[in-house]
Amino acid sequence: MCLAIPMTVKKIEGSKAIVESMGVEKAVDIALTPDVKVNDKVIVHAGFIIEILDPEAAREIEATWDEYTTLLNQEQK
């Protein structure tokens, strides 16, 4: 029940958004994320968008992670 999958917003129509993942489209409620825009990547749970993915944060994490693994590796030696 708690599985929430990332989907892409295709269209916004009133209180609903059409979201898509792997070719499957679905109408979901946007009451919890009124600022959602077309092309946003979102997390959907029980028919509602619960949060919008932050591409900036994702990029930052990717950038630091390489360093982090190297660091961890060294510490272990």
Binding site: A31, L32, T33, P34, I43, I50, E51, L53, D54, P55, A57, A58, E60, I61
Partner: peptide
């Protein structure tokens, strides 16, 4: 917070308000 692409420090205030 490993999941910072989705999770913010204060969560989703709109959802909490509702």
């Amino acid at each position: 917070n490993e999941y910072a692409r989705v999770v913010r420090d204060d969560g989703n205030p709109k959802a909490l308000e509702i």
